[in-house]
Amino acid sequence: MTATPPTFPSGSLNAALDAFKAACAREWPPEAFALVNQTLTDLAQTGMQERALKAGDVAPSFTLPDQDGRLVHSQDLLAQGPIVLVFYRGMW
């Protein structure tokens, strides 16, 4: 049941992710894969993606701790240059 992710050539993260998704479709229990897909369809229909902040909006500033408890201040980083801010679910 374990789908093996392909190694991705640099610059093509989504090609690798698509391949992994296809492997999941083959190898997971069909009802589990269908449930995940249905949930994503429902989520898309809420329109929340369109309500998220977008280009031109003011970015809310933040102060958050890193894994060692050190505080990271967005304002400090912006004084140095742009920020690439990446939200992700977790590494579980």
Partner: peptide
């Protein structure tokens, strides 16, 4: 959970690009 998202924020604190994914199985391309 958050939707997976990548924002480029310029030095004035303005978002210059926003890549927000409903399907967490795809992500912003670096």
């Amino acid at each position: 959970l958050p939707l997976p998202a990548t924002f480029v924020i310029d030095q004035h604190g303005i978002i210059r690009s926003a890549d927000v994914r409903v399907d967490y199985r795809n992500r912003a391309e670096p």
